[in-house]
Amino acid sequence: MITEEKIEQIAKLAMLKVEKNDIEKFQAQFNEILDYMKEMDNLDLSNEDAAFHINELQNIFREDEIKESLSNEEALSNAPDGFDGFFKVPKVI
């Protein structure tokens, strides 16, 4: 069972804030979903390897060549705030 505190803790890890009156709703939904997932406990997966990549590709290497890419101006064109070719963020320290 997921508690209200757990919901708040997950939200914090995910850089989200869940409003007080939504916590209960999320809690109920999470518990329903995780409860459904208990069906997987019926499976014996001890002999299975984890399929982190389903097409079984090996490392894809390429030469480290300089190619045409976005200009500084283009890369910053969607930034909410920028200055002198940099992203601008609120004071950190």
Partner: peptide
């Protein structure tokens, strides 16, 4: 991890 193992089984 369990889900990734199940994915192998599905395959």
């Amino acid at each position: 991890l369990k889900a990734q193992k199940l994915r192998s089984l599905l395959k």
